[in-house]
Design a protein around this nucleic acid. Sequence first.
DNA 1: TCGTATACTGAACGTTCGGTCAATATCTTA
DNA 2: TAAGATATTGACCGAACGTTCAGTATACGA
Lengths: 200, 200
Amino acid sequence: MNKKQIQSEQTRKKIAEAARNLFVQKGYKATSIEEITAATGSSKGNLYYHFKSKEGLFLYLLDEWDREWIAKWKEKEHLYTTSADKMYGFAEQMVREDLNHPLTKAADEFFTGDDKTCEVEDRIAEMVAEHLSFNRTLIQQGVDRGEFRATDVQSLAIVLEALVIGLSKICPRIDITQALDTYRLAIQVFLHGIAAKPES
Amino acid sequence: MNKKQIQSEQTRKKIAEAARNLFVQKGYKATSIEEITAATGSSKGNLYYHFKSKEGLFLYLLDEWDREWIAKWKEKEHLYTTSADKMYGFAEQMVREDLNHPLTKAADEFFTGDDKTCEVEDRIAEMVAEHLSFNRTLIQQGVDRGEFRATDVQSLAIVLEALVIGLSKICPRIDITQALDTYRLAIQVFLHGIAAKPES
DNA sequence: TCGTATACTGAACGTTCGGTCAATATCTTA
DNA sequence: TAAGATATTGACCGAACGTTCAGTATACGA
């Protein structure tokens, strides 16, 4: 690789990192291109040389994020024996990686934003589908192992996703140890419910 | 009341209603003051005569919304005998009143928006607190009746809130009957869990 | 060494939008 | 009916923001 190409790659990363930090702190809309360039030291035009648009930049970060998340999960997944353990592990990674993760807040804001390109809509749909698929696998494994009873794994995957999304929206207000507790409790409820007697 | 005061009241309502419709359709940010005034037939300045700001207008609508919701709940609450029934009823009202409710999307966007006044922050905190209090009561009743087992009602209230928030974020993509099913399933899971064996 | 592709600059643009204000109309009250 | 309170108008302001582009610098290949 050229000296020039390396340099270029570095600026690209630098921009991405600065953008990531700002999106984390301030959200998507509140972060202006100007601020990002100010944080990198490079110029507006340069950002647009490396990234198609603000949306494109954000989408790039989302991809990066997803890849890292999956990689981290793959690392840990085999450590858990039971499916229930896996669930708690899943919750823990959610808290540790996502709750403080740069992009959670921004992503959420981005998703609910008004001005979405078709490309973005598609990408979002894709990400949701991936999540559901992940959850489905998680639950299905438990069912196969005889740990969980479930007639409709797909619907349960949706419920789990809802739970996780909701938690991520509520928990930023509290500190991490409380968040961990809340997530654990949520998974516990998901597994055992709160009814005094087992279902008839 | 004066003829003038009545007229004034009417314009106020008219503006509120137009704003509500637009916020529903387009979300908070995407709805401009100009559009609202165009929909009412009155002027920009007049809107600012009746409402302090766009935020203020939206806050007013939120209040209205909450009041209506509570009123509707009070109407139905006594129809349910067991606490479990109440839970399902709660879920049903959520779907019927909020899922398609004008302001759900806008409110969500508004909450995650960047430019919040202190006043708004406070109002949001207040609303969250109210919701949690509502949930707490719901769960506590079940505990008192011996239907639910719970050591930490407050935390469970948070988990329930998370579930509801998450569901409301996922379900708009699907039609109402499916949404009802999903909500019911979620409550069922909340009550009974998915583990094969009862908790040790 | 020179031409060229690549990397980078930053001023300027166009647009959007919330909010203001001086002027005006309308109604109330004394 | 005159004075004053109340309601309404809409042109205008200023700031923010994403994006563009004509131009400059730098490193590479020949």
